[in-house]
Write a protein that binds this DNA or RNA. Structure first.
Lengths: 138, 138
DNA sequence: ATAGATGCAAACATTTTGCGCCGAG
DNA sequence: CTCGGCGCAAAATGTTTGCATCTAT
């Protein structure tokens, strides 16, 4: 089974190695937002010979090809998620007690952001919205 | 002249040392978003004996007392700005060509964010919005 | 065949920490 | 006086890189 990210790599004409295929698979299957070290651990459960350096290099290439997105939630490390362009643009709510990340989509924000950038004389390329909250009744 | 941040330290009953006073002054006067190293350099122009470790420790205390805010614009280092609660909540537009940071305020987003958090079962504590854009006509 | 990808270990950059001394309250 | 803050240097953490080797195309 070819992972979704591997298909995106093909579109960008990336040379596909065993390592990249495994890393693509791991990130495609992730339901959370793993950091480089976590990706490395999951990759190593599939193939013990893949190095952390390769994970970093591959992540970096995926990111510059917009195949994955980096998020910085303030815990010191960069975290990543697949960037499926046909999926709606979503954002993150971070539970400040548990660190849990909840994804959400909001139409109104999608509309607003372009207007704001335009008003400032910019074309919007990307954006990031993160909410930090505490669970009600806990 | 007592800096604005120093006044906030007093409210939180922080022990005020020469070092903290100078660091408070530097961050209060910053019109940009300096990282720890940059704060350290500016601090040293006023007092050569203040160490980088103290800058980090002080920043950390300021941050946990909500006196300053950390921002991560994706350049690998944490950047900081004063968090004047009586100032309107603002956000950042980052020029992806120059790295320039433009601050802006948007009323509609202020309204939206609380509704979204509530809908997800959370009380909003903080949030962060960053737009990344290219200047029009350049 | 060959450009580019990999593994390893060393280098880097940023941030944190242990310890003995010092200074604010 | 005393507790916490300080400077220094060392360590920890996350990430990048030089080099010799290997591999997808």
């Amino acid at each position: 089974m070819i992972s979704r990210i591997e298909k995106m790599c093909a579109l960008v004409k990336m040379k596909m190695t065993t390592q990249r295929r495994v890393i693509a698979e791991v990130i495609s299957n992730a339901v959370d937002h793993p950091c480089a070290e976590e990706i490395y651990k999951r990759v190593n459960e599939i193939d013990k010979n893949i190095s952390l350096a390769t994970v970093y290099r591959t992540i970096s290439i995926f990111e510059s090809n917009h195949i994955i997105k980096k998020l910085e939630i303030g815990d010191g490390k960069s975290r990543y998620e697949a960037n499926y362009s046909n999926t709606e643009h979503h954002h993150h709510l971070i539970d400040i007690d548990t660190g849990e990340i909840i994804e959400f989509i909001d139409e109104d924000i999608e509309k607003l952001k372009h207007d704001i950038a335009k008003k400032l004389g910019y074309v919007l390329i990307d954006h990031r919205l993160e909410l930090y909250g505490k669970k009600i009744n806990k």
